[in-house]
């Protein structure tokens, strides 16, 4: 098992290197750089940046170096000093901008995931074991509704309800008085009272699809001969259900766990914008629109790294769950 993890960690190195190169290249693909854009903005405002000013700005941001030099500078700063460079638009170090958002995003992701598991796994099991029962039909119906409603719409509805009936501030993860306050219990409490809306919004679709997947997987597994074998051993139904078919049924689900990681980090942009959450999604979106290269590059890089880590996490979990993978 340990050997397996070490092997997987070694395999990560070339992947990460490739990710960094690709994300840097993509950011550099659009014609023009930040200074061009700044000059155009000034022009519409009636000002003119002289070529000398542009050159000195380029020199200041390091934009005059050859592209390989820019990359080496960028990556070695990240690896050696943890310095992701300056966000040109926000005029702040990228790490200041990104770390807090990343932490919040992760909190949100994790809580949504737990929400999904806690809700979906029992319902999925119930649906499979009592196939075509009224309870199964209700779960199926609710699940399809959850899948069909667009997330942002659900977000708006919940926002309205929380504002109208609970008198909560609209949007964001904090009430205005806590945004810049230092971390303390009250602030955490405030965070939790705001967290439930995005958690439910992000969780609904995931819950619905997990119920369906788990139900289908489990229905397949329940018909397998090893379930009958377990039954002939005299095991109680609930015990054999959890020990045998459920563990088999979780297998395909765990192997897609890395998708959930990625989706929760980057896929929730629209919801985050609607709810004005301080997560990485809107930040990346904004950075890309503004050609804020260092910010965008760092964000893409971090998301990709998270994806790789998520894949590692799900693979290790899978190897723990299914010995056949460990022995390959």
């Amino acid at each position: 098992m340990l050997q397996y993890i070490i092997k997987r960690l070694l395999f990560m190195i070339p992947t990460l290197l490739a990710i960094s190169i690709v994300s840097f290249t993509i950011i550099n693909l659009p014609p023009g750089d930040y200074v061009d854009r700044l000059a155009a903005e000034r022009r519409t405002a009636g000002e003119e940046l002289t070529p000398e000013e542009q050159a000195s700005l380029r020199q200041f941001y390091g934009l005059d170096q050859p592209i390989i030099g820019q990359y080496i500078q960028w990556i070695s700063d990240i690896v050696l000093k943890g310095d992701f460079g300056m966000s040109i638009r926000w005029n702040l170090p990228v790490d200041d901008l990104i770390w807090q958002r990343l932490a919040l995003t992760f909190t949100l992701s994790l809580s949504s995931m737990l929400f999904i598991w806690v809700v979906a796994i029992p319902i999925g099991i119930y649906s499979a074991v009592n196939q075509y029962s009224p309870g199964d039909y209700v779960a199926t119906f609710v699940g399809f509704i959850g899948l069909a409603i667009p997330n942002f719409l659900l977000a708006l509805v919940l926002l309205y309800i929380s504002f109208k009936y609970f008198g909560q501030s609209v949007g964001g993860l904090f009430s205005p008085e806590y945004i810049d306050a230092p971390w303390n219990l009250a602030k955490i409490g405030d965070l939790l009272s705001h967290l439930w809306i995005p958690m439910v919004v992000l969780g609904t679709a995931g819950t619905a699809s997990l119920i369906r997947t788990l139900r289908a997987n489990l229905l397949d597994e329940l018909r397998r001969p090893y379930v009958t074998t377990a039954r002939t051993k005299g095991l109680p139904e609930y015990w054999l259900l959890i020990k045998y078919p459920l563990r088999h049924a979780l297998n395909p689900f765990v192997s897609s766990l890395n998708d959930i990681f990625v989706n929760l980090v980057s896929g929730a942009t629209i919801v985050s914008i609607v709810l004005s959450l301080q997560t990485t999604g809107p930040l990346l979106f904004d950075a890309l629109r503004n050609e804020d290269m260092y910010l965008a590059g760092s964000a893409i890089m971090m998301l990709s790294v998270l994806t790789v880590i998520g894949t590692l996490f799900s693979d290790v979990l899978l190897a723990w769950l299914d010995p056949r993978i460990r022995f390959r």
Partner: peptide, 24 residues
């Protein structure tokens, strides 16, 4: 009946690969 299954009366099946779980 659970007390009889697996103790007084037991069963074996055709395909031992699928009749035993590969996970344990």
């Amino acid at each position: 009946i659970r007390a009889i299954r697996g103790k007084d009366i037991t069963m074996i099946f055709q395909e031992p690969m699928s009749s035993l779980s590969p996970l344990y």
